[in-house]
């Protein structure tokens, strides 16, 4: 193993890690605001993949333009899911929300399988390679990481500098108090759920520019989102980016030291250990 290999693995890991990070950010935002674990997250990631893929391969749209459309559709889908399903179970025991989101997962997965089958798809899109000194990086991954950072910045700005964003944080902090202050919590919750699914769709769309996928691929990324979410602190959207970076580095470096198939074992063990030792995440305060 030489230094350049190590460096390439490390940077590749970081680039993919941030993309995983925004998927997890969506999951974390939803958990943080409404204490719902969205088990339909993975399938929405997969929808994002298909969205970019279909716009690109059938309409010939530039994938990054397609990503914009996918983001808007992701937001709308989330708001729709919120009003049809989540709003009715949000005050029920957490089992109801888990199973409700899981049934949404089943429905979308079933429709998706009927429509797209489970044959692997590949966008075939490429931006060539970029050479940076000893490093050779895939252009699509580089752009994906840049897009992720832009999206994170925008989310940060939205949550901390705009009125609806502040409302979201207020509702996350204390829904009853926010309602007393006149914040329309139902609409804010719908918006939060929508942003959560939008982030999932964006992550999926970006992944589709460099990996092949099927409608079932969402599962893997959903589980990565759980791991990242717990690493960064459940309910902490920005911590998810850090969690994504950590997971990315692990996925970049660990295969150099052990067979690839051991990597998920380490990831899931890490996940359980952090849940047990510090469920508020590596960045989180006291539990």
């Amino acid at each position: 193993m030489n230094f350049s290999n190590l460096l390439t693995s490390l940077v590749d890991g970081l680039l993919i890690g941030v993309v995983y990070g925004i998927a997890a950010m969506g999951l974390n935002l939803i958990w943080g605001v409404m204490r719902v674990i969205n088990l339909a997250h993975g399938v929405i990631i997969a929808l994002g993949m298909f969205g970019v893929y279909l716009f690109f391969s059938t309409l010939g749209l530039n994938p990054y333009l397609a990503l914009l459309l996918v983001a808007v559709l992701g937001l709308l889908l989330g708001v729709l899911i919120y009003f049809i399903v989540i709003a009715r179970v949000i005050n029920a025991p957490y089992l109801s929300t888990l199973l409700a989101t899981f049934s949404i997962n089943m429905i979308i997965l079933g429709l998706g399988t009927a429509a797209f089958t489970t044959t692997p798809r590949d966008s075939g899109f490429s931006l060539g390679n970029v050479d940076l000194g000893p490093l050779t990086l895939q252009g699509t991954r580089l752009v994906a990481a840049l897009v992720t950072i832009l999206v994170t910045g925008a989310l940060y700005y939205f949550l901390y500098r705009t009125r609806p964003g502040k409302y979201i944080r207020a509702v996350a902090n204390n829904r009853a108090a926010a309602e007393l202050m006149g914040i329309p919590s139902d609409r804010i919750l719908a918006l939060s759920f929508g942003i959560g699914t939008m982030l999932a769709a964006i992550a999926g769309g970006l992944i589709a520019t460099f990996f092949s996928f099927t409608i079932l691929s969402g599962d893997i990324y959903q589980q990565k989102s759980f791991v990242i979410g717990v690493l960064g602190g459940l309910g902490n959207p920005l911590g998810a980016l850090l969690g994504g970076l950590i997971l990315g580095v692990l996925e970049g470096i660990l295969p150099l030291a052990m067979p690839n198939t051991w990597v998920p074992v380490i990831e899931f063990l890490l996940f359980i250990i952090i849940l047990l030792v510090k469920p508020s995440g590596l960045l989180g305060g006291r539990q």
């Binding site: 409700a100 899981f102 049934s103 997962n105 089943m106 997965l109 079933g110 399988t113 009927a114």
Partner: peptide, 10 residues
């Protein structure tokens, strides 16, 4: 099958 099961469950 998956769609119908999911819908029923919901």
């Amino acid at each position: 099958q998956l769609v119908i099961s999911g819908f029923l469950m919901l």
